[in-house]
Design a protein around this nucleic acid. Structure first.
Length: 266
DNA sequence: AGTGCGACCCGAACGC
DNA sequence: TGCGTTCGGGTCGCAC
């Protein structure tokens, strides 16, 4: 998401919106008519990010956008035909479009006045980012110690740590040497410290790499990440652990595919 | 209150 | 150059 933010930021700021075309209503959670009308004539002035939410600054508003599993943004000439799965189209006065593409239609957008940002529940409830220095072992310990849920599930809880998805959660647990099914109630202060360190270094490195692209087709704006080369466990079922050679296992935790090394992760 | 699980969608990958 | 089934980079709501 940070890669998407940085790339988009270079390409769409200071361009006046001439038209907004919504082809699939349910993506827009805020009032649809306001969404279609209020953005016309305005320019994006900045793009922020909170966890996996992109937050476009525009006039008196924030446009909050969550891409969920497969949402992507493309910039195209406005003369190009609308492709399948392009659901929301912002047309700029310079003849280009910003197009939101989402195969599974899971993504969501909310247009809110700036002082109402907290009314977007998902945005408001975000926890602390791995790259935020205020993420501490004490904070994690307090949030984990009473929870009878597997650590894998707790790392995916965006209200505790903000921004870890299924890939990075597996990688953080591997780097921290923690078994994904270990319960929050069983976790030590030292393990929390390792989660702070691992999540910070993994996310920083992933941002440097331009993110992770697993499925081989074009990602947002045609940008392809390189972090998949650094993956130690995720999507590596039946392959050897790069540290100890043990065969990587795949299990399901909280309904999510989970990859781990049973020797390295106790 | 906290936890488990189906729903939301669709295409790709898989099994036969 | 089949066809049905399963699975998934995420989150929410509902049942228990």
């Amino acid at each position: 998401m940070e890669t998407v933010r940085q790339t988009l930021r270079k390409r769409i700021l200071r361009k006046k919106i001439k038209n907004v075309n919504v082809l699939y209503d349910r993506i827009v959670e805020s009032d649809l008519e306001e969404f279609k009308k209020n953005l016309i004539g305005l320019e994006f002035t900045d793009i922020l990010r909170k966890g996996k939410w992109l937050i476009f600054e525009i006039g008196d508003y924030y446009l909050c956008s969550h891409l969920r599993m497969e949402g992507k943004y493309f910039i195209k000439d406005d003369t190009e035909e609308i492709a399948k799965h392009e659901h929301i189209i912002f047309t700029f006065e310079d003849g280009t479009d910003l197009r939101y593409h989402d195969t599974r239609k899971f993504g969501r957008m909310n247009l809110v006045l700036k002082d109402k940002l907290d009314t977007v529940e998902g945005v408001r409830k975000q926890g602390i980012e791995p790259i935020d220095p205020s993420l501490s072992k004490e904070y994690l310990y307090e949030n984990f110690k009473s929870r009878k849920l597997p650590m894998k599930t707790l790392l995916l809880d965006q209200t505790i740590i903000s921004g870890l998805g299924n890939i990075y959660a597996d990688e953080v647990l591997f780097a921290a040497g923690i078994n994904p099914v270990k319960l929050g109630t069983e976790i030590s202060m030292d393990e929390c410290d390792r989660i702070v360190e691992s999540s910070n270094s993994i996310i920083k490195e992933a941002i440097k790499c331009g993110g992770t692209t697993i499925r081989s087709y074009t990602s947002s704006l045609g940008v392809t990440g390189r972090f998949q080369q650094n993956l130690m466990v995720h999507k590596r079922e039946n392959e050897e652990c790069k540290v100890c050679g043990t065969i990587i296992k795949r299990i399901v935790v909280g309904g999510r595919s989970t990859y781990y090394c049973e020797k390295c992760q106790k």
